[in-house]
Amino acid sequence: MWSLKTNRIDCPANPAANKHRDLQAEPGRRRPNRHRMDEDNKLQFPSLPATKEDLLDWAYPMRREMQEILPGLFLGPYSAAMKSKLPILERRGITHIVCVRQDIEANFIKPNFPHTFRYLVLDIADNPVENIIRFFPTTKEFIDSCLATGGKVLVHGNAGISRSAALVIAYLMETFGMKYRDAFSHVQERRFCINPNVGFVHQLQEYEAIYLAKLTIKMMSPMQLGRSFSLQAGMPGSRKRSLEEDEDFGAMQVTAAQNG
């Protein structure tokens, strides 16, 4: 993943210094280049692809339909996955469906086509105290698996506004290295009615730091990991400001939702 390099400069006038450098260059005594280590640990994310569909002026009836958020990734309500909508699902090329519901909804929100599509059914309540972060990795793995095989996936809850929207926003954040506000805006431009509840908004804001830390640790060697923990002392000012800005944005969303 990364290699250690020691740049040696001989100093003929100072043999002792050269001897000291020789000791440093011995196997097991090499020191990692900090700049190289930082470059190797820099997280790289793919660019956000553009959808093939043009953005349309939002109309109220569109709430009952699914919209393409990314090429192959759709977000919508349960009404877009009802039995009567099978021809539309097949015409759009849907192969996978994420069905979000809680126990009390299981009687009317259900996998209608288990022999036609591959389903991921998640038990999530649209409640501010629900821990939705725990479902983000499973959802991402399911979506990634679908898109990697050339499939298309629909993520739906009941209305396609809160729970399913939060899952899609989290997917964009982690996949493309996006801030919460940017991922929210991208999804809202394509499905204007999204409105994750207050608790989900706060969890999505927190998730940026969680997935970045997870990815960083995953790509670090044990030596780098040890040095990182010993050298880091507190959050960089720019990172702290970034999180504070997202908190302000989330608070504005929550206030707007509460005011109707």
Rank of each mutant, 00 (worst) to 15 (best):
H20D: 13
D182V: 06
E39L: 15
E26D: 03
M220C: 08
P46K: 11
V168Q: 00
C193A: 10
F142R: 01
M173G: 10
D38Q: 14
S185F: 06
D103Q: 12
Q253W: 11
K5F: 12
N33I: 13
A81Y: 00
N7D: 13
A166L: 05
A165I: 07
C11K: 12
I69Y: 04
R101V: 03
G150E: 04
R239D: 14
L212T: 13
K19G: 05
E26A: 14
I69W: 04
G234K: 09
M223N: 08
D57I: 14
N33E: 11
D10F: 09
K218N: 09
P77K: 00
N41E: 13
E68N: 12
G76R: 07
N107Y: 09
G226Y: 10
Y78A: 12
Q232H: 13
L243G: 11
W2T: 14
H20E: 15
M62S: 15
K179G: 13
P222D: 06
I109S: 08
R163Q: 01
D40F: 12
A125Y: 11
M66Q: 08
M173P: 05
A213Q: 15
N127D: 14
E105Q: 08
S185P: 00
P137E: 06
L122G: 00
K19I: 13
T138L: 14
I94Q: 08
V129K: 08
P114R: 06
M252E: 14
D22C: 03
D10W: 11
G177W: 01
E245H: 04
K83M: 01
G160I: 02
D54Q: 15
N107A: 15
K214M: 11
C11D: 12
C99Q: 02
R63A: 14
D54P: 13
I88G: 02
S145I: 03
A50T: 09
I97W: 01
A233C: 12
I169F: 01
G177F: 07
M62A: 14
N195M: 12
G260L: 10
M66P: 05
T6M: 15
G234Q: 08
L73A: 09
P137Q: 01
Y60P: 08
M66A: 12
V155P: 02
P87M: 05
I169D: 02
Q67H: 15
K83P: 00
L89G: 00
L172P: 02
A256R: 10
N131K: 07
A125N: 04
Q258V: 08
E244R: 12
L86H: 00
V198D: 14
A17H: 15
F229D: 07
A257S: 06
D182P: 03
T255W: 09
F200W: 05
M235H: 05
T138D: 08
P61E: 12
M82N: 12
V121L: 00
G237N: 07
R64K: 15
S185K: 13
C11M: 13
F113I: 00
G199I: 03
T255G: 09
K52N: 10
V100R: 07
V254Q: 09
L4G: 10
F176Q: 02
P61V: 07
A80H: 07
A209I: 11
I132R: 03
L43F: 10
M223Y: 11
